[in-house]
């Protein structure tokens, strides 16, 4: 296909992503506004104060509040292509493996290129572009994990874990390394909370 057909598609993607960023900002603002309103109303009675506390706890558990602390930063990237026709790598399975490993090591919060990983998060490839929380991203990837750096590093360094990724790193077909970080900040999840079919029992 000629460039004149492809270029408008690139422009559409960049435009839609910019629109999404603006929507997310708007959504975050509305959530804060609603939270402030509930907090002010909660000061009026003991029952609502208790409810407010439960809401605060659930928001933190769900990843709707910012998190900060020490942890691990993982870098994942593809080396420069040797031939121009080298097929780009789809990193989605690696990203889910790394996230799984971080939870296993007791991480309290994880993000992929700034996208907070929450209960509804999925990571998949469209071509070699990654979609995380419905947001498009590409290599290089930075996975941040807040938690005990020693426990995180020990799990990542365990030769029995992430074998495939480590083999490819040793073969120099992928760039992959993890480093301790004394202070990591991970922003809140700013996507939709779709609850339409499930009802609490």
């Amino acid at each position: 296909m000629t460039i004149r057909y492809v270029e408008p598609l690139h422009a559409s993607i960049e435009g839609l992503q910019a629109q999404q960023d603006a929507f997310k900002e708007q959504l975050a603002g509305l959530r804060t506004e609603l939270d402030d309103l509930q907090r002010t109303a909660a000061t009026q009675s003991g029952a609502t104060q208790d409810l407010q506390q439960r809401l605060d706890d659930l928001r933190a558990l769900a990843g709707l509040t910012a998190a900060r602390g020490e942890g691990l930063v993982v870098q994942l990237d593809a080396p420069p292509p040797i031939a121009p026709l080298d097929r780009p790598t789809c990193f989605a399975p690696d990203l889910t493996d790394i996230t799984n490993m971080a939870w296993r090591a007791g991480a309290a919060a994880v993000s992929i290129n700034g996208e907070r990983v929450v209960g509804s998060s999925s990571v998949y490839c469209v071509g070699s572009t990654i979609v995380v929380n419905g947001t498009v991203a590409s290599a290089p990837f930075e996975i941040r994990a807040i938690g005990d750096p020693a426990a995180l590093l020990a799990t990542f360094d365990d030769p029995a874990q992430l074998r495939d990724l480590k083999r490819r790193r040793d073969e120099r077909s992928v760039i992959f390394h993890a480093t301790r970080a004394p202070l990591i900040e991970i922003g809140p999840y700013t996507g939709p909370i779709a609850v339409g079919s499930a009802r609490t029992e």
Binding site: I13, L16, Q20, V126, G127, G134, T135, G191
Partner: peptide
Amino acid sequence: TLIADLSDRNRQL
């Protein structure tokens, strides 16, 4: 496909 996925997500938002 990316355009369709982004449009869908923006509709949800």
